[in-house]
């Protein structure tokens, strides 16, 4: 059997695997973005009683390998009354990991905006929320985007680890195909190329966005 034929037979299961990878990544990235923005803003402006617990969670989670976090949520969760299927557990773990990175990126981007900007916005009579939306966030965006896209690619790559919970994502689909065909080399290369394509598209989008926001100088 030539490789083209093997690939043709394997294509449907690889496609389904790719769909799962994209789904896991997209859901995790979205959750992480929302939670991370809230956590990061709280870290920058919140009262100490809010900052301390968030700081603790962020530091602990960022200090643990994603794989350990995935296993922890899946195996230790039930003991704490958190009974999750493998898919939910994987997404929760990935989201949490990514959210903590986004929180740190958000905090850094916010505090890089000169404190005078907040004062000037307040002096004009804007409420705190208006200051954030109209003055701080637009300026922080330029510093937020590059590291955030980095963290998105980290999440896409990290999503390969969910295969270890038995979820048939692109990674596991490739391994299953290899198990059927005994052709590890071409399929691992193919898998690597697919991951590379996704992440290259993301990082070139990041470069375009950076250029777009470069006009904001301070």
């Amino acid at each position: 059997m030539n490789f083209a034929h093997v690939l043709f037979e394997a294509a449907p299961s690889l496609w389904r695997g790719l769909e799962v990878t994209v789904e896991v990544s997209a859901v995790s990235v979205s959750f992480a973005l929302v939670a991370g923005l809230l956590f990061g803003t709280a870290l920058a402006y919140g009262p100490i009683l809010l900052r301390l617990p968030i700081r603790a969670v962020v530091d602990v989670v960022r200090g643990i390998p994603v794989l350990v976090l995935i296993f922890f949520v899946y195996y230790v969760g039930p003991a704490a009354g958190l009974e999750l299927g493998s898919f939910s557990a994987a997404i929760l773990a990935l989201s949490l990991f990514s959210a903590c990175q986004v929180a740190e990126i958000t905090r850094g981007a916010i505090i890089s905006v000169h404190h005078g900007q907040m004062e000037a916005a307040r002096a004009v009579g804007l409420t705190f929320r208006q200051c954030l939306v109209s003055v701080i966030f637009p300026q922080a965006l330029r510093r937020f985007l590059p590291p955030w896209i980095n963290s998105v690619t980290d999440t896409v790559k990290g999503s390969a680890l969910v295969s270890l919970l038995g979820i048939v994502d692109l990674m596991l689909a490739i391994q299953q195909v290899i198990g059927r065909t005994y052709r590890p080399m071409p399929f691992y290369v193919l898998g690597a190329l697919i991951y590379l394509c996704i992440n290259y598209a993301l990082s070139s989008a990041s470069r375009r966005l950076e250029a777009h926001f470069a006009y904001v100088r301070d």
């Binding site: 005078g116 307040r122 804007l126 705190f128 003055v135 006009y215 301070d218």
Partner: peptide, 20 residues
Amino acid sequence: LAQIRAATGMVFQLFYLFPH
């Protein structure tokens, strides 16, 4: 506070214009 601040206008030594 926002309302009270809007009643006075402040001009700063370092301008603090919104750069964006």
